[in-house]
């Protein structure tokens, strides 16, 4: 698929623009928020001498005109320097170090679980009678509507405290991962199940499905060899939304389950107005969106050959 691969450099360039936009917005947000950055650096309820305040101002370059600060920040970012945390006094990269892996682990496990839940639910209920479908649909709605932290608390109450099946907190191995990942996956799986089932039902009503049945194919043949692949398309389309849900969900889940990870770092950084850390996390999220969307664009033509560029042309 050379046509598709040719799109990669262009999309990467566009991704850089997205990151620049994200950095700019984060910078503007910081300077539009009322209050003195120095107070943030000092932390709440701390009194400091004007000399100390001036020193901090100088250290962080806060005295320079905004434009200079902005350009300096961009230049730093371009060199991969994410700045220093106001709160911890450490380079941001050090703050994030060790936090990325647990979150990625959680997100990937949750994605896998969500897809499993979605496809299993959809496959088991597509084309079934009204009762089964209404029941499945109701359960999905419940999974989507219930706040994930509440699900997490429920899981903790029963699976961890009451029956002691799974660990309640920490990141000690796969067992500790299961409950938070499930908490994160359920609402996503609920939405995806509805999307997948709708597509399965629609695809099985299209003319090619009649062809498959007229060849003597069973409904299972139709599903496994034909319609399931059609259902993968809308799921790919929703990938951006999935990433968003994962990032948002990670904040809650990591807090409820006392897991290390970016979500918790974000909560701490936001509550203490630790802007360099927040900026770095915004950039990281933006980068995740860019990469995932690029992967989705590459996945589309793999799933649907009709999207493989115009270069092949129509044979006569």
């Amino acid at each position: 698929m050379p046509e598709t691969l040719r799109l990669v450099p262009r999309r990467l360039a566009a991704g850089v623009l997205v990151l620049w936009g994200a950095a700019t917005l984060a910078f503007l947000a910081l300077h539009l928020v009322p209050g003195d950055v120095v107070d943030t650096v000092l932390g709440p309820g701390t009194a400091a001498t004007p000399a100390l305040r001036e020193q901090i101002r100088l250290d962080y370059g806060l005295g320079d005109p905004l434009a200079v600060q902005y350009l300096r920040q961009l230049a730093d970012l371009a060199h991969g320097d994410l700045g220093r945390s106001y709160q911890l006094g450490l380079p941001v990269s050090q703050v994030l170090e060790g936090q990325v892996a647990p979150t990625v682990e959680l997100a990937l496990t949750a994605t896998a679980l969500a897809l499993l839940i979605a496809f299993a639910a959809a496959v088991l209920t597509a084309g079934r009678g009204r009762v089964v479908r209404s029941l499945a649909s109701g359960l999905e709605l419940l999974a989507v509507s219930v706040p994930s932290y509440w699900l997490g608390i429920l899981g903790l109450t029963f699976l961890s405290y009451r029956f002691g099946l799974l660990p309640a907190a920490g990141d000690s191995g796969p067992a500790a991962l299961l409950l938070p990942a499930l908490t994160l996956a359920l609402p996503i799986g609920g939405v995806l199940a509805r999307v997948v089932r709708q597509e399965l039902d629609e695809a099985s009503g299209r003319p090619f499905a009649l062809t498959v049945r007229a060849r003597g194919g069973t409904e299972r043949t139709l599903l496994l060899r034909h319609t399931l692949r059609h259902a993968a398309l809308p799921v790919a389309t929703l990938s951006g939304w999935i990433v968003g849900s994962l990032l948002g969900g990670a904040v809650l889940t990591e807090t409820v389950f006392a897991r290390p990870g970016l979500g918790r770092v974000l909560v701490t950084a936001v509550t203490s107005k630790d802007v360099p850390v927040v900026t770095a996390l915004v950039l990281l999220s933006a980068a995740a969106f860019v990469v995932v969307n690029l992967l989705v664009d590459l996945a589309y033509p793999v799933i649907d050959p009709r999207l493989r560029g115009a270069g092949t042309g129509v044979a006569v």
Binding site: R206, P207, F208, L210, T211, V212, A214, R225, H226, R229, H230, I303, D304, P305, R306
Partner: peptide, 16 residues
């Protein structure tokens, strides 16, 4: 019994 269904343009699975 073989069936050649209506509208050949959409009667083959487009993804295969």
């Amino acid at each position: 019994v073989g069936l050649v269904s209506q509208d050949a343009l959409v009667s083959l699975d487009p993804l295969r």
